[in-house]
Simulated assay, not measured.
Amino acid sequence: MSMKVTLFGMAALAFAGAAQAQTEVKIGYALPENSHYGAGALTWAEVTEAETDGAFSFVHYGSSGLGGEREVLEGLQLGTVEATIVSSGTLSNFVPEAGVFDIPFLFRDFDHARATLDGPIGQEMLAKFEDQGMVALAWGEQGFRHITNNRNPVAEAGDLAGLKLRTMENPVHIEAFKTLGAAPTPMAWPEVVSALQQGTIDGQENPLSVIVSAKLNEVQKYLTLSGHVYAPNVLMVSKIFWDGLSEDEQEAFRKGAVEGGLAMRAFVDEAEASGAQAMADGGMEVNELDLDQKAALQEALAPAYEDYARMFGAELIEEIGKVE
């Protein structure tokens, strides 16, 4: 009997030791788990945990539970946060070249954007983050950005005149809306909904995946399907954390991140198919820009395009345009 107790005790101790050896991975992101961010994070966690036989346990901090995106990225640099999924809005503050993907009307459609990010141009951009204390493992996705506001529908640049529009803390976006006559107001995402409710700002711009997940129909009247900018995001880990992993563990995290990015794209595809109708059903007035209206906006953006060519290089912009 005592032998059985001893063996049982040894097994319990072994199990406790294994549990203690499990490494916690704090992952922070801006939206709740039922969003495209959550879809990517949960898939990333599931694949990585399976590939490492449960050696790692992801702890999710959705809805900006670890702070705004800049704060989370600084946490990665310090090693106090292990992982994140972050929008392109903050990335150019760390790797300025990444701002090239934020140029309005740069991408023809989803296929063009995804082919660019998955190809040499996108993969070379990911590699640049390592010098900033972060390891960018894969591209995720939010979709094409659209405009919502409480003042009026948007059909031309004149409709944006003086519109207090929340933008990400992104110099490319800010310059574009200034050029179009709006009053861009950079603001961290956690502050946006309350600012819309209080009338501090008139509107904001985001993909349907965000507009739907955040239920912006509850605080915004007009939705304009402008598709003015494609919005990727990045699944990344702290370099301090990464350097402590074995090669097999690194490969597991990379595989999980790639699968997480694909899960985000699938979520976005669904949101694109049903999101506008859901917002209309939720009380928003929806209008969509046609090709001529988009072309007119591009013409109005000519001064900004000249600046973008100087910032990122006309050659790179042309190279992106040629991706099939």
Rank of each mutant, 00 (worst) to 15 (best):
T6V: 10
E24H: 09
Y29L: 04
A30E: 12
S35V: 05
Y37L: 09
G38P: 01
A39W: 13
A39I: 12
A50T: 05
T52A: 02
S64R: 12
E71N: 13
E71W: 10
L73R: 11
G79C: 08
T80L: 09
A83K: 03
L91W: 15
P96T: 03
A98H: 10
D102K: 03
F105P: 15
D109Q: 03
H112F: 03
R114K: 08
A115K: 00
I121K: 01
F129I: 06
D131C: 13
Q132N: 10
G133W: 04
M134T: 10
V135M: 09
A136Y: 15
A136S: 09
F144H: 03
T148W: 11
N149H: 07
P153E: 12
A161F: 11
L165C: 00
T167N: 11
L180G: 07
L180R: 02
P184Q: 08
M187F: 01
A195T: 06
Q197V: 02
Q197E: 15
Q197L: 12
S209D: 03
V210T: 02
E218G: 05
L223S: 07
T224N: 15
G227W: 01
P232V: 06
V234I: 01
V237P: 06
F241M: 05
E247V: 08
R254M: 10
A257L: 00
L262N: 05
L262V: 14
D269F: 07
S274V: 00
G283Y: 14
V286W: 05
V286E: 06
L289H: 14
L291T: 15
L291V: 05
A295K: 11
G313M: 13
E315A: 07
I317D: 15
E319H: 07
